[in-house]
Each structure stands twice: as C-alpha cells, then as structure tokens.
C-alpha cells in the first residue's frame, strides 16, 4: 500500500503538470477560431457531444500547406543544434579546468558558474543588448583597439542569438560535465601515460569517454530549451531570425488563432519527445551502470 502511494506521487505530478495541460492544448488544436472569450469553439460549455463532434485535424493540415512552418522548425533545429555544439566547445574546457583545479578552489569556481542565476534571465539577456549594439561596449572597445574602423552590426542578427543562447545555457553544459570529470579517477590518466600514451591521446582515449554521460546530459539540457526559445531571438535576433517560438507567438498574438498556435505547439512537442526519450534512456543506463 505504501509503495503504491509512493509511486502515485510522480504519476500524479506527471498527470496534473504535463498530461492534462497537453490534452487541453491538443483539444484547442482541434478546434476552430472564433471572436469570443476564449477565442475558439467548441468549448465545454457547448456540451460534451458537441465538443467531440466539432473537433477535426484541419489545423494540422493547414500547417503542411504553408512552407513557413517547416522552415521555422528546421531553422530552430539548426540554431539549437549549432548552439549546443558551441556551448559544448566553450563549456568543456571550463568544466575540465574546474575539475583539475586545486580542491580548495573548486567550491568558489562552482559558485562563479552558478552566480549568474541570481540575476533574472531577462535582465541577463537584455544586458547583451547593451554589449552588442552599434554604440555598445563591445564595439566601443573594438573601435578603441583599432581592430575595426566602423561598428560591427551584431545585435539583431542570428549571430547575436547564438551568443545569447551559448551564454545563457552554458552552466547547464558545464555542471553535468564537471560532475562526470570530478568523479573520474586521476590514476587512470597516469596509467595511460605509463602505458605510453601522450597526454593528448590519454585525454582523447580516457577522459572524453569517461565524461561521455556528462556531455550527453549537458547537450540535451541545452538543446531542448534552445529549440523552443522565444526570449533570446526576440530580444537579440533580427527580422531574419526565424524560430518556431516566434512563429508560435505570432499565431497566438497577431492572428489570434489559438487553434493553429496549439497545433504548432503540439508538433514542437512531438519533435522534442525524441531527444527527451533518448535523454531518459541515457540517464537510466547511467544509473544502472553505477549500481
């Protein structure tokens, strides 16, 4: 009985915070838009029979008739993928450096990685507007150095979006990799070197494979939120940055078409389910391996 109750907790959590909201969104995606509060029909007020009779997949069909949607999905996938790779390239050396640092420094270094979370996400992204703008800190500095003769246009381009995503999600990459490297036994490296490996080969053959789970966890933690990102592209991106988060916003706010917006969201979720399932499986395998 106690076991059942214990298992019921996570399932109740999943049911109320994921499944029910998802079903509501899915239901709206099968409705039609209307000029009313809320702006779609049918609703539960019309009775259950009318509700079910009024549902159809028209909005999903609509998404296939316009190339905007698949282009936005593809471009979001591309942006999420590249920024995940860049975050890995920046994050790995930091995590490695932290794991190699003297024991008494590590707590401080960890603190420095977590520190930005104490400031609102929105403010941190907005700070980049001040850094990247034509009159911003970065351009002033480059002009002062004489590296450029006129300001670089970075703000309101896709480059700025990459910078924003890499900056924002960097701690999510560093922490799991650090955790993996921290657990690694240094004597393995010594053994590799004793057996004739150069330091680089030892790193490649021993350190990287042992931190593999950290890398995978970090990549998923960055990729999944980056795919649906809305705040960063709308603050730092320009008119040429096409991301599904912005398309969703436009369907919802500009067209007032909640049903189509919901259909876009349902498909986004379906795209995300693949990496989420892979992530779960990886976590499980890791847990089993440790037992």
């Amino acid at each position: 009985m106690r076991r059942v109750a214990l298992i019921a907790v996570p399932y109740a959590w999943l049911l109320t915070l994921f499944l029910i909201p998802f079903l509501i969104v899915f239901k709206i995606s099968l409705s039609d838009m209307a000029l009313a509060i809320p702006p779609y029909t049918p609703t539960l007020n019309d009775g259950l029979a009318a509700l079910i009779a009024g549902l159809d997949f028209e909005n999903f069909v609509f998404l296939t008739t316009d190339d905007l949607y698949y282009k936005a999905y593809l471009s979001s996938l591309q942006i999420a993928l590249f920024s995940t790779l860049m975050t890995l390239l920046v994050g790995y050396p930091i995590a490695y450096g932290m794991a190699r640092a003297p024991q008494e420094w590590r707590a401080t270094l960890m603190m420095l990685v977590i520190l930005p979370f104490w400031t609102s996400f929105l403010i941190r992204v907005y700070a980049w507007v001040g850094i990247l703008s034509n009159e911003g800190v970065l351009n002033q500095f480059l002009l002062w150095l004489g590296l450029v003769s006129e300001p670089l246009t970075i703000l309101n381009t896709t480059t700025a979006v990459y910078i924003g995503i890499v900056y924002t999600y960097l701690p999510f990459m560093i922490l799991p990799i650090y955790a993996a490297l921290d657990r690694m036994d240094d004597s393995l490296i010594e053994a590799a070197e004793d057996l004739g490996c150069s330091r680089l080969t030892a790193f490649w053959l021993v350190t990287i494979p042992l931190s593999r789970n950290g890398i995978i966890a970090g990549c998923f933690l960055v990729f999944i939120p980056a795919l649906g990102e809305f705040v960063i592209p709308s603050l730092l991106g320009g008119s040429g940055t096409l991301m599904i988060g912005k398309v969703l916003f436009e369907e919802f706010f500009n067209n007032r078409d909640w049903p189509v917006a919901s259909a876009v969201a349902v498909i986004l979720l379906l795209i995300l389910i693949v990496p989420i399932v892979l992530f779960q499986r990886n976590q499980q395998r890791q847990a089993e391996a440790e037992q």
């Binding site: 000029l35 940055t241 067209n255």
Partner: peptide, 18 residues
C-alpha cells in the same frame, strides 16, 4: 479573421524573407 491571416502571413514573409 481571413484577411488578418493573409496580412500576418505576408508580414512574416516580409520580415524573415520566408
């Protein structure tokens, strides 16, 4: 609503080039 959709779609196309 029909014209609005045409307008928003055109607007997205104009802004993003797609």
């Amino acid at each position: 609503p029909k014209v609005q959709r045409v307008v928003t779609r055109m607007w997205t196309k104009i802004k993003s080039g797609t």
